[in-house]
Design a protein around this nucleic acid. Sequence first.
DNA 1: TGTAGTACGCACCTGTAGGTAACCATGAAA
DNA 2: TTTCATGGTTACCTACAGGTGCGTACTACA
Lengths: 129, 129
Amino acid sequence: MKKEVPDWVDKVDPCEANCPSRDILDLIGDRWSLLLLLVIAQGVHRNGELKRRIGGISQKMLTQTLRALEANGLVERRDFQTVPPHVEYHLTALGVSLGNALTPLFGWIEDAFDAVLAARTAFAEREAA
Amino acid sequence: MKKEVPDWVDKVDPCEANCPSRDILDLIGDRWSLLLLLVIAQGVHRNGELKRRIGGISQKMLTQTLRALEANGLVERRDFQTVPPHVEYHLTALGVSLGNALTPLFGWIEDAFDAVLAARTAFAEREAA
DNA sequence: TGTAGTACGCACCTGTAGGTAACCATGAAA
DNA sequence: TTTCATGGTTACCTACAGGTGCGTACTACA
């Protein structure tokens, strides 16, 4: 059995412009979705807390991203209908499963960051030469 | 041992605006990087092949994304210095390791896509009501 | 003679992601 | 009675991602 490519290459084929995976990649490929997912999983559930926790996010993007995550079934929004407003966001089962699927990626980021930085420096020097 | 949150939540903290992980998330969060990574791993190595394989990518974005991947040490560019030009792109060890880290994500996309679609429909109907 | 393939670089244009600011309704606290 | 916190919405503006199109230098083929 000749196997020249690693296992993970043929799991999905997002080459076709109309492949569903493109859609999902767009969803998680924005600036805040993964961060929000992470922080909510860490146990931060309220609008204000999230905004304070995530450095640099604006109220607009926070609301917008939460709506997108909700629309895709990854987080659940609980509005307590009180005044002053009390709203909580929690991961759905689907959201948790996505989080689990992202574990290796976050791990890789931690592990490989130094190597990436080194590669950048080396590349810049090669270009300058 | 009280453990209320899943394991993957505290692996990295990209909450600080200056956290390195933001940088990496930006790198892979664009439209073509992951796709290119995938297709190169599948054994497609030349510019023209990649362009034909990946539906919808322009020559400009192909070159641009390949350069970014190269600059971050994920792919290696081999220029055979012939005429007509012959250039090949291969994953580096770092690129392969990222690919491995992405396996669960691609798997999740396959598995969860139906659920996401259903959630979208349900959400749209809830909104319309 | 002309067209196609190879791998680009550069100029130009547009859509949109994402930022800022102002506004809303309410109650508690200073 | 003025401020703050709650969780938003909306209008407006800008920067940049990404698309189109043309130019380059050479070969092969009809």
